[in-house]
Design a protein around this nucleic acid. Structure first.
Lengths: 204, 204
DNA sequence: TGTACATCAGTGAACGCGCGTTCACTGATGTAC
DNA sequence: TGTACATCAGTGAACGCGCGTTCACTGATGTAC
């Protein structure tokens, strides 16, 4: 058993987890503070002992999401070392895996309408995640002749955009109309992109 | 002056346009039927003369969005002919232009949580848009040796995902943290991708 | 160990609000003669 | 052209609902002596 606080014990985290479940189940709109409180077996008013209000609760859920996200991608990146290419591809796969495994966090982070600058903590977590991706891109781009090397931040923005687009269009509402799995789509897309940068053999 | 109906005249369309403005201004969550009615200078109850309810109003806005979207992309595609490459690139640019020019429609189409299968009309409009993109991809892929040619639907899914990702991450909240314009980001991304397919000279 | 006290997490009732939706109605518009 | 009638788009009042938030409180937990 985890350590308990005075009464409920870890109500703060229980509220966040309840909120995540609700967001996951009903979308960013479906989340209400009252229902999250109910999920945690507590009166709506109790929420105000731990959060300034509804938005703050979502912001904290998003922050935790960004922390996990950055950790996961950092880990994937490290694991792919010393090959810059392998490290980069692993990071891309980690992206999709995260969106699949933690849909509530993903929605809170990217679809809830929360500004990343709402709190300093959220901004920092988001910046860290961005940093990991950019570092992976910067590493990889050293293999490209300097004259035709795109800026690492552009490079990572391309991959981030492609990944996010695949998640939003093809990984929601399982298998709506796509004949390919999101994983295949992302992997082939990244492969073609990297080939375009001359990082993979043209006829590999 | 446009033709007027009995009382208000074109209340139906006025409601849709009011809804679009609200969605544009306050996000998909910020839209309420009552406020849309107010915008059109009408009682909330009047809405029910024209729509089954709130969701139906959004669905119709999304449908009109898909129609415009498909038209625009079809037009861009035709204009780029007979060069398959030019046609394809124009279609990509049209995507971003649409998202920029009609944010309300874009949000209703992709971010409102409305299922594309909510009404047959909406599903048809969405399918038509998808068809235009796939046709462009199919045309272009004839220039790739058959053995290494990816399926056209995968091809167009990559480009759609990249475009959507750029819109969602970098074209909202004008210039949050990106050092590049969404247009540049999308254009360079598509360029690198097409190079990866061997459709552009490696050192062009 | 036992008692008195302080802390503070969670309660429960209440609030004002705007929502989506319903209903019987009204009165401007269009039509038949 | 003028009158009587039918249509039906929009009204206005009402509804039940769940929301986020506030407040004085209570009572379990932890602490000092």
């Amino acid at each position: 058993m985890a350590k308990r606080g005075y009464h409920h014990g870890n109500l703060r985290q229980a509220l966040i987890e309840g909120a995540l479940k609700l967001i996951e189940a009903k979308g960013p709109t479906g989340f209400t503070l009252s229902e999250a409180a109910k999920t945690a077996g507590v009166t709506p008013a109790a929420v105000y002992r731990h959060f300034a209000g509804r938005e703050d609760l979502i912001a904290e859920a998003a922050r935790q999401g960004f922390e996990m996200f950055a950790d996961l991608m950092q880990y994937a990146f490290d694991k792919g070392q010393p090959s810059a290419l392998a490290a980069f591809e692993a990071t891309g796969r980690a992206y999709l895996a995260f969106a699949r495994k933690h849909p509530g966090h993903y929605i809170a982070m990217f679809e809830s309408g929360i500004s990343v600058n709402r709190t300093p903590e959220l901004a920092a977590a988001s910046a860290r995640a961005r940093g990991v991706l950019e570092k992976a891109a910067a590493n990889l781009s050293e293999h490209i002749p300097e004259s035709k090397r795109p800026p690492a931040s552009m490079f990572s923005a391309h991959i981030w955009a492609l990944s996010h687009g695949v998640v939003e269009l093809y990984a929601r509402n399982a298998g709506a109309t796509a004949p390919f799995s999101p994983e295949d789509l992302l992997e082939t897309g990244i492969g073609i992109y990297l080939r375009g940068l001359g990082l993979i053999e043209p006829d590999a």
